[in-house]
Design a protein around this nucleic acid. Sequence first.
DNA 1: AATGAATGAGTATTCATTCAT
DNA 2: TATGAATGAATACTCATTCAT
Lengths: 228, 228, 228, 228
Amino acid sequence: MAAEVARTKNKRMPRAVREQQMLDAAVTTFAQRGYGAASMDEIAELAGVSKPLVYLYLHSKEELFSSCIRREGAALLAAVRSAVEPRDAPADRQLWSGLRGFFAHTAERPDGWAVLHNQARTHGEPFAGEVAAMRQEIVTLVTQLITEAVEAQGFPRDLADRDLAGLAHALVGAAESLAGWANGDPDGEGPSAKETAALLMNFAWAGLQNLMDGRPWSPAHGTAVKSG
Amino acid sequence: MAAEVARTKNKRMPRAVREQQMLDAAVTTFAQRGYGAASMDEIAELAGVSKPLVYLYLHSKEELFSSCIRREGAALLAAVRSAVEPRDAPADRQLWSGLRGFFAHTAERPDGWAVLHNQARTHGEPFAGEVAAMRQEIVTLVTQLITEAVEAQGFPRDLADRDLAGLAHALVGAAESLAGWANGDPDGEGPSAKETAALLMNFAWAGLQNLMDGRPWSPAHGTAVKSG
Amino acid sequence: MAAEVARTKNKRMPRAVREQQMLDAAVTTFAQRGYGAASMDEIAELAGVSKPLVYLYLHSKEELFSSCIRREGAALLAAVRSAVEPRDAPADRQLWSGLRGFFAHTAERPDGWAVLHNQARTHGEPFAGEVAAMRQEIVTLVTQLITEAVEAQGFPRDLADRDLAGLAHALVGAAESLAGWANGDPDGEGPSAKETAALLMNFAWAGLQNLMDGRPWSPAHGTAVKSG
Amino acid sequence: MAAEVARTKNKRMPRAVREQQMLDAAVTTFAQRGYGAASMDEIAELAGVSKPLVYLYLHSKEELFSSCIRREGAALLAAVRSAVEPRDAPADRQLWSGLRGFFAHTAERPDGWAVLHNQARTHGEPFAGEVAAMRQEIVTLVTQLITEAVEAQGFPRDLADRDLAGLAHALVGAAESLAGWANGDPDGEGPSAKETAALLMNFAWAGLQNLMDGRPWSPAHGTAVKSG
DNA sequence: AATGAATGAGTATTCATTCAT
DNA sequence: TATGAATGAATACTCATTCAT
């Protein structure tokens, strides 16, 4: 079985290819060990190259980590963007399709997701910023969808911009949490991306509807759904 | 002249007090630097003691980190538990009060929250497990509340246990995300714990109502709210 | 014989003592290997301590090298200063005694002299500057002596300040060269400090006299010593 | 568009030319960075060729450095030799013209001089030896001149061979020191080669005269110039 | 004649951890 | 209770050098 590996190893390869191999190895290693505990030695070995080559192409541990973040962040963003249905579809369809894209992608590349979600935010400023920017792009996307939906509904009663942003944050947080939950049970059959997306849509969209209809929950009497 | 200092610094103190000082310093340092980048030197200095004393009391960096997690986890759990209204209150009141407690606590102890939320999950197995267990306790609490509410409503139509657990996960994830959002703008006036809790209740509870009423969102036609 | 060493090794010692041991080892190593080729491992081993201790006290290879330069530079300067006869002695006696001090010191501490003369000037800016400053102090001292002598003589004919500085530079350069020459033949009997100083005085002072007497050498007719 | 560059850069060139380009680059780099800190990468880049070509022609860093030393040493020696006036001129004219050649050459090729004077002596045995040999050639040349002058004078009173060698060493050291001094002020107007040579001749030759006349300086009574 | 791809062997530096007091 | 002195074990990073083309 190591023959397979041996045959692909140590061969001269164009720089671009080697770089991707290194990034693959780095993402895996960072995801499993964490930034601090991951050693360049281990990454190089997993990539099947010598350490100096890693430095020649990726320059430093920090830059390597940044490259991972950027690659995985861009991939996630692209996956979500390409999954959302066209702009003229109803907002709920757009959100729903985007969520499916999100859950499918995170399920498919758990290490990439782990780097973005667990590792990058944790470690000092070069990284937290990059991942925060990427996350903000998603939050903004969601905010737009929600706002659109609200506006399509006529007058929003009590929904300030800040509230919409807050809702988007809540939704994104819920999605992140569910991504961990759905993929969490290691080998077990977790729910599919479709199911998870439906679960969250139920939670989110239905709630939004009430909000838009001017029936918010209030500490005084709960949602006045029965009294309507 | 150094007497001032000596009195507050080198003074002999009972073990319990010293330990708390060390844990305070450790939480601050871990939160700001991350587990890997935090050095025992820095922690000892911030605690105002020598390194051997830290080892004498807390034994190792890992144990020190674990102690931080446990202390902060217990404090958070206690804060939430003591905040929820008594068991005979309506489920939405219980959830709402628990959320207020959660947001208030995370706002009050941002470093502790950072250690739990950002650091602990990131670093290999001793820690991720401890914090996951603690988180699970909260998820379970929320699941109970939701289940209670659903059952109080009569027959749940399509809500399997797994769905309820999923909803609880989504809710907790949303809360975590909002905690970061609310405290995020550094010195700026973020929303109060009360406002954030209300925002999330609006989002969550209203959605739950629809679900319980058997009006789930579906990809085919959105929430049938108008058609009811 | 290694017993001697073993008995003094690995013992707990006050910081100040250890630092001097480390500097001794560093001076020897830098002198023999050069800055680049000297390894911290070797220095630590020669000093009889572990590498971390070297870093704890001297902070980095650069700082360690700087410390060597400063210690050896200060020692040389002190040796010269304490050797020159009092300010009310004739200038030639002062110069002569200073030279004796210089040659004696460089003979006694060849490694220190090698660090200052060979290594420090060679390696980039932190170091070259420090040693240049120290050398300038000596040049200035010599310039003063020469100037004094000239002024004691009445009016200097053609000796501008720049010329005096140049003469001082020449003298110092000659002394440096002779220091290498005198100590150069390894185990052989080189000339004593006294002899070397006398040689240079013959060269320098006699020339100076002619200059002061207004009988400079000129390309046209050599020194007009016979024609006087 | 890149044609311009390609024509001057990647162009095939005869080996001899390429070698000189590489040596030029190496001399510059060694002079500025020092042997240790100079990297083959930097040298190759400055020479406008790839690293393997440097190795193909110059074989190793050590050999490259040696080649620099030899080329620059030979150039200096040639410059001095071609500058000295013919053997039948008076010794002082010969010395004077040689010094002019020396100062002119070092001013013209400061990097080459830096490699010889600062770098080569500093680094272990292959190099120190080569440069010492070259220096010795100059010292010998000077010794001959001095000896000639002394013998032309009739009987030297107290001048042993060793003294003559010492004087030559002093003179050469003084010249080296003055070379640094004269070229030292970066862009400022340092003294010309002619002026510097005159300064040193004044210092050296005049002193020599006194010596030859049997009027050495002595610690007891200074130069007996007045008492004559 | 010339180079892109690749590495073995090292080096400075740091850190958690312990001993002797 | 408390600390100054000391280290084993790692790790990021670099460099001279070579191979295959």
